[in-house]
């Protein structure tokens, strides 16, 4: 049975240290090149890894027209189709409204086997969109997936990271997974030949009208949260590591330091 995999991706600024405009509370994107969210690339490469002949991978993204670049990279990496959801109505969406938009797209695509999402986007770091898509679609989800171990018939086996190790989870399809990129992951640089073919693969641009749904649920109107203030957290002072020769000496040193700071 051929499967359809949907991969949700986002275009983000190429930095993990996005600066914030203190007056507008928005991210300063000027001068920062945009890239495919690295966590999403891992999700896409997991989908490619398990794809078998006849399966189809569709990359979808909500964003401005420039987000086409991120989707083209997905096509160059191995996705078969890409859909860009772009409309002024989508502007100002929080994670819920973003999920709603992506869900409308997924419903329009039709039956699917799996949805792949990255852990989070490196600009907002919310890690909400994947789980919210699963909630809105009413399908099971597995988060913190380190790797897809096996896909047999309608059963998926995944290796899931936990606080103190990992566990193996089995689930029936359809399912949504969010990946957690292992440190061993080396993102693929798309080869030239695939880059040249990317623009020849099917690419669609859908707006709100095309998606249908309730217009009030898109963008700022459909957002359940309101951003009051965005700020960079203050830089923490470096901690002190006590490395005396014996445990007793370390305790003595700790007491000295705490006494000096009048903690005890």
């Amino acid at each position: 049975m051929n499967m359809k995999f949907i991969v949700c991706v986002k275009q983000v600024p190429d930095t993990t240290e996005v600066k914030i405009d203190p007056e507008t509370n928005t991210l300063i994107r000027e001068g920062v090149p945009s890239v495919l969210n690295p966590f999403d690339q891992f999700a896409l490469e997991e989908a490619i890894k398990i794809r078998q002949e006849g399966d189809e991978i569709i990359a979808i993204s909500m964003g401005p027209p420039q987000a086409k670049k991120a989707l083209l990279k997905c096509l160059a990496l191995g996705a078969d189709k890409a859909i860009l959801l772009t409309d002024k109505v989508f502007a100002g969406a929080d994670t819920w409204a973003t999920s709603y938009t992506l869900v409308q797209c997924i419903k329009k695509i039709g039956a699917f086997s799996m949805i792949f999402c990255g852990l989070q986007a490196i600009d907002g770091d919310t890690a909400q969109v994947g789980p919210e898509i699963a909630a809105q679609l009413g399908i099971p989800q597995i988060t913190y997936v380190e790797s897809v171990e096996k896909l047999e018939g309608k059963k998926l086996t995944a290796k899931v990271q936990t606080d103190d190790g990992y566990k193996i989870v089995e689930v029936k399809l359809p399912v949504l997974i969010t990946g957690i990129t292992p440190s061993s992951f080396e993102p693929t640089n798309p080869p030239m030949i695939n880059i040249m073919k990317a623009n020849k693969k099917p690419f669609s641009t859908w707006d709100a009208e095309e998606l249908g749904g309730n217009k009030h649920d898109y963008g700022l109107n459909g957002s359940l949260t309101e951003v009051i203030k965005v700020y960079s957290p203050p830089v923490r002072q470096q901690g002190v590591i006590i490395e005396e020769e014996t445990a007793e000496a370390s305790v003595q040193k700790l007491i000295e330091l705490l006494s000096k700071d009048k903690v005890i």
Binding site: V35, K69, L72, A76, P187, N189, P190, I195, A198, N199
Partner: peptide
């Protein structure tokens, strides 16, 4: 072109 921008990104990373 879009392809050339992708080529740049891919080669630069490598």
């Amino acid at each position: 072109t879009e392809e050339q921008e992708m080529i740049r990104e891919s080669v630069r990373e490598f």
